[in-house]
Each structure stands twice: as structure tokens, then as C-alpha cells.
């Protein structure tokens, strides 16, 4: 069995959010880059756990990104990926990225394609569903549990106000979130081994873009907190009722 895990590069969760070039680009100065947490902690680690149960499973990673992505790809290999593909492009359009991954996925004939629930920078929540439609495959989003039974996947996903367990025959695409697995830290053996694992660089296929980012801006700063004495919590309730009209 072959699993393809889609990993994207995002700024560290504590990175300062600022913009450059007339607010058209994210300011990358001093920014630490990480594997998008949903891709790493949930999709990748769950795939590694499945491989630990069944060593015949092959774990392939894919990233659509420039050469700057290689450190995060190597980290994913150090955690336990077997080999990786990088599609050499830095387009931000979801459809473009999904088309690249779908193309590679078709070539590789994967049984399972895993994505994160969303990227923490663009917050698109779109790539998984788009790949699924391009390949005409079932898509389970917001999955919190995944097991395989023969040629079926047993997936539990979050639905509004609860959970639902689905049985789907492979191939399929799953977007992963919290609950799937626990974060891991790569060990020395993994880090050493990752250096020699195959990382293939491919040029993107011809593809149109459906959207483009025009500019960014930051929310207005809060005007400052109004402090209320701990001896007078009734005053807080009055303000919430009369001033902010929230209750």
C-alpha cells in the first residue's frame, strides 16, 4: 500500500505577521518555517503509525514549493517518510497546487492521500477537496481517526455537533485534524537517515489559476482593556449588557 502525504510550509505559530512590498507580500525576514502543524502532527504521524503496524506500507511526501521548502521536507523524512516529491513552484492559488498534487498522485497510484485540515497561513481548507474532485475520489474532511481494514479505510470525522464513522474503499482522500495522532520529535537516527532518502524535484504541469491575492492588511489594534475591580464583578455584567451589548 502507498500513502501520499501533502505537506506545506508555514510560518512558525509565533511568527510576527507583517507585510512587505506595499502590503502585497508576507514579510519573511526572521521568520522560522515549520511543517504546517495539521500536516505534521496529524496526517504524517498517523501515516507513520499505520506503517509501524504494517511495514509494507510506503510513505511518500509531496510539497508544492520552491527550494526553500527542502528543510521542512527533510524534517518530514526524518520523522518517518520514505521518499519525497517537490513540485518546483511557489504559486499560492489553491487550484494550481491541487492540480499539481493530483497529477503526481495519479502517476503514483496511491491508495490514500492525506492532507491537513487547513494551512495555518492561508486557511484555505480547500486543497484536499480539490484534489478529490480532480481525481473523482471520495473525500472525508476533518478526520479525527483513521484505520485500514483490508481494502477499506475506517475514518471518523467531525460533524457539526458530533462525530461520524465512515467506511470507504480505497483510494480516497482524507483531511486530518487533532485526535488523529500525537506530535512526535524526530530522533538522531531519523535525522541522519533523512539525508539520503530520495527527494525528487519535478517541474509543475501547465495549469491556470482561479484566484490571486491582491493585498494583505492587519486588523486594527484593540483600543486597550478596560479593567474592572475584582470586588465589583457586577460592574462587568453591567458593561457587557449596557456598553458592549453582548449579553
Amino acid at each position: 500500500m502507498k500513502i501520499l502525504i501533502c505537506i506545506s510550509k508555514t510560518p512558525d505559530t509565533t511568527a510576527k505577521i507583517a507585510f512587505a512590498e506595499n502590503n502585497t507580500k508576507f514579510a519573511t525576514d526572521g521568520v522560522q518555517w515549520i511543517i504546517n502543524p495539521y500536516d505534521e502532527w496529524y496526517a504524517l504521524v498517523r501515516a507513520i503509525e499505520l506503517k509501524e503496524k504494517d511495514p509494507s506500507i510506503e510513505l511518500h511526501l509531496i510539497n508544492v514549493g520552491s527550494a526553500d521548502s527542502e528543510p521542512i521536507i527533510r524534517k518530514a523524512l526524518a520523522l518517518g517518510g520514505d521518499e519525497a516529491i517537490r513540485i518546483n513552484s511557489d504559486s499560492a492559488d489553491s487550484f494550481f497546487v491541487a492540480a499539481q498534487i493530483a497529477h503526481a498522485a495519479k502517476e503514483g497510484a496511491y491508495d490514500l492521500i492525506l492532507t491537513g485540515k487547513e494551512t495555518i497561513d492561508y486557511n484555505g481548507s480547500s486543497i484536499g477537496g480539490m484534489i478529490a474532485e480532480i481525481l473523482d475520489l471520495p473525500f472525508i474532511s476533518h478526520a479525527i481517526k483513521l484505520d485500514n481494514e483490508g481494502s477499506d479505510s475506517i475514518v471518523t470525522r467531525e460533524i457539526e455537533g458530533g462525530e461520524e464513522t465512515n467506511k470507504v474503499s480505497m483510494p480516497l482522500i482524507i483531511s486530518c485534524q487533532k485526535g488523529m495522532a500525537e506530535q512526535r520529535i524526530p530522533n538522531m537516527k531519523g535525522i541522519m537517515g533523512a539525508r539520503t532518502k530520495p527527494l525528487k524535484v519535478l517541474e509543475p504541469i501547465e495549469c491556470e489559476t482561479l484566484t490571486s491575492i491582491v493585498s494583505f492588511d492587519l486588523p486594527p489594534a484593540k483600543s486597550g482593556v478596560k479593567l474592572i475591580s475584582p470586588d465589583n464583578p457586577e460592574e462587568l455584567v453591567r458593561l457587557l449588557h449596557e456598553e458592549s451589548k453582548s449579553i
Binding site: 491541487a98 480547500s126 477537496g129 473525500f139 482561479l210 484566484t211
Partner: peptide
């Protein structure tokens, strides 16, 4: 989040989520 991206591909319609 599951339907809109699929529909975007099906209709070749740009999506802003």
C-alpha cells in the same frame, strides 16, 4: 469545507473560503 472546493474544480469557479 468539503463541498465548496470540489465545486470549485467542477465549475472551474475561483473559491474564496
Amino acid at each position: 469545507k468539503a463541498i465548496a472546493p470540489r465545486l470549485s474544480v467542477r465549475l472551474k469557479a475561483g473559491l474564496v473560503s
